[in-house]
Nucleic acid binder design. Sequence first.
DNA 1: GTAGTCAAGCTGACGC
DNA 2: GCGTCAGCTTGACTAC
Length: 215
Amino acid sequence: MEIMPESSACLELTMSIPGSSSNSSSFPSSGEGGGGRYNMMRDLELDINQVPSSGNINDEEISMEEEEEESSNNNINDNINGASRKKLRLTKQQSFLLEESFRQNHTLNPKQKEALAMQLKLKARQVEVWFQNRRARSKLKQTEMECEYLKRWFGSLNEQNRRLKKEVEELRAMKVGPPTVLSPHSCHPLPASTLTMCPHCERVTKTNVRDESRI
DNA sequence: GTAGTCAAGCTGACGC
DNA sequence: GCGTCAGCTTGACTAC
C-alpha cells in the first residue's frame, strides 16, 4: 500500500545569486569521523540561521512580515553563544519552499541541497536535517494511516465473523438433515437446505431446495 | 504542569 | 573513508 508517490525525477533548483561567494561550501556537513565530527558541528551550530548583513534576499519571496519573523529568529539565535542551544524556527517562506521541494522530490543531491540552502539562507546541514525529519514524519503519518486502515478492516472482519458464527449456530439449531437432492449440474448430492449470500446485506440466507422447486 | 511539535544531536548501517 | 540515510533521542518552545 504505497500512498506517497516517489518521484524519480531529479529536482532542478535554478536561482540567481547576485554576487554570491563560495562561503556556503565551507560548511563541512561531515568531515571527521566519530565524535570529532559532531563536536565540529556543535561549534558551527552557534551561528545558525544568521542572515548576512549584505542581504541578497529576494523581495518577491519574503514579505516584510516574514522578514520581521526572520529577524526575531536571528535575535533568538544571537543568544546561542550561551551554553544552551536555542531552537531554530523556520519562517513561513522557508517552510513553504522546503515543502515545495519535498513535494517534488523526497531526497536532495548535494547540489540541490546547497542551492536550496542558499536560497533559504540556511546551512546545507539544516536543509539536510529538515529533509530527514520530513521523511520521518511522512513515514510516520503513512504508518498511522495504515494502522487505522488495518484497525477498521479488523473490525469489519470481526463483525463478519460474528455474523457467520451466529448463522452457523442458527443452522445447527435447525438440525437440517443430510443431502438428498442431486445437483442438476454436477449430479453431486446437494443439501436439502443450501446457503446463499445476499449481495446487499452480506447475510447468509438459507434456501430450502425442495421449497425452491415448488416455487 | 504537561503533552505535543520540531530542529538538531547521535549512532549504526549502507553504498560508492 | 566519506556521504547519506533511518531510527531514536534530546531539548527548546508552544498550546492547552
